[in-house]
Amino acid sequence: MTAARARFTAPIRAGSRFLLGLLLAAAVWEGAVILLGIRPHILPRLSEVLSAIALTPGAYRDGFLRTLAETLIGFVAGAGIGVLNGVAFFRAPVLRDMLFPIFVVSQTIPVIAFGALVVLWFGNTLMAKAVIAFYLTFFPVTVNTLLGLNAVDPRQVALLRSFGASGRQVLLRLQLPMALPQIFVALRLAASLSLVGAIVGEWFGDTTGIGVLLLQAMYNENVVALWAAILCSALLGTGFYALVALAERRIVFWGAEQ
C-alpha cells in the first residue's frame, strides 16, 4: 500500500517544493532590487507590483477573465479542429496531399500580418481574438494527431481487423487512444500558443484584456503596471499549461509504454 500512498503524497510534496521555490524567487526579486539599488523604471520591487494590482483589482480581474475566455475558445476550437483534421488527413491521403501544403504556407504567415485582417473581418470582438488563438493552435495539433495515428503498430491494427473490426472501430478503439500521447504534446504547446494569439489579438484594438493592459502600460511608460500585466499573463499561461499537463497525466496514465 506504500505505492498507493506515494501516489497521493508525492504530488503534495512536489507542490510544496514548487511553492517554496516561488517564495524564494519572490524574495530574491524583492531583495535584489533593494540591495543592488535597481532603479524602479528598470525593475520595480515585487511588492510595488502586487500593491498596484491590489489597488485596482477589478481592471486586472476583468482583463484576466477576458483573455482567459479568448484563449480557451481558441484552444478548444484549435484542438477540436486539429484532431479532426489529423483524422481526416489520416483516412484520406488525397485530402492530406491537397491541403497539408496550404496549411504549412498559412503557418509561415506571421500572425501579426494576419491579425489586422481578422479584426477587419470579425470586428473588435472576443471572437476575433479567439480566431487568432485558433489560428496558432490548430496546426501543431493537426500535425501531431497525424503523426500519432501513423505511428500505431500495424500488427495491432491487424489484430483488431482479425476480430472483424470496422475502420471506425479501429480508429476509436485503437488508433486515437494510441495517438493521445502525441496529441497531448501538441496540446501543451497549443496552451501557450493560444495565449499568445489572444494577447496579440488584443493589440489590434480592444478595451479589456491582458494585452490591452500591456499596451496601456507601455504607452504610459508605467513600468509597475507593465510588470503587473506580465504577472497576470504569467499566471494565466502557467495555470493553463499546468491544467493541460494534469489532464495529460490523468488521461495518458500509461505513459509512453507501448
Binding site: R155, L159, L174, P177
Partner: peptide, 11 residues
Amino acid sequence: FMPQRDLLLPW
C-alpha cells in the same frame, strides 16, 4: 487470432 506479441492495449 493470437499474434506473437501480446499487443494488449495499455489503457
